Amino acid sequence: MSDAPLTDPADDLLDVLDLTYEGSTTIQVASPTEATGDLGVYGGEVFTGRSQPQPHGRVFGGQVLAQCVVAAGRTVAAVDDGGGRRHIHSLHGYFLRPGDASKEIQFVVEGMRDGGSFSARRVHATQEGRILLSLITSFQEESGGLEHHLDMPDVPGPEELRSDREILEQIDHPVARHFARYRAVDLRHTERLLLGPAEPGPAAQSVWMRVEKDLPDDDLLHAAILAYASDYVLLEPVLRTHGVGWGDPRLRAASLDHAMWFHRPARVDEWVLYTQSSPSAQSGRGLGLGHMFAADGTLLATVGQEGMVRLKA
Score class of each variant (00 low, 15 high):
164 D>W: 07
188 R>W: 06
155 V>S: 03
178 H>K: 00
160 E>I: 13
163 S>C: 05
172 D>N: 07
226 L>I: 15
177 R>T: 07
212 E>C: 04
204 A>T: 10
168 L>C: 05
217 D>M: 07
160 E>C: 12
216 P>R: 08
179 F>N: 09
179 F>C: 07
173 H>I: 04
207 V>T: 12
175 V>P: 02
208 W>K: 01
201 G>D: 04
213 K>T: 10
204 A>M: 09
164 D>V: 08
227 A>V: 11
225 I>H: 11
215 L>K: 06
163 S>I: 03
221 L>M: 09
173 H>S: 05
172 D>A: 08
221 L>T: 10
150 L>A: 14
151 D>R: 08
202 P>Q: 00
169 E>D: 06
167 I>P: 12
152 M>L: 12
206 S>V: 12
163 S>F: 04
219 D>H: 10
159 E>S: 04
222 H>K: 01
207 V>A: 07
225 I>D: 11
198 A>S: 03
222 H>A: 01
191 E>T: 09
168 L>S: 03
194 L>K: 06
212 E>L: 03
183 R>M: 01
213 K>N: 10
182 Y>A: 01
170 Q>S: 10
208 W>G: 00
210 R>Y: 07
181 R>G: 02
152 M>W: 13
168 L>H: 08
160 E>A: 13
185 V>H: 09
169 E>W: 00
200 P>T: 11
153 P>L: 04
152 M>A: 15
190 T>L: 15
181 R>T: 05
167 I>V: 15
196 G>S: 14
224 A>L: 12
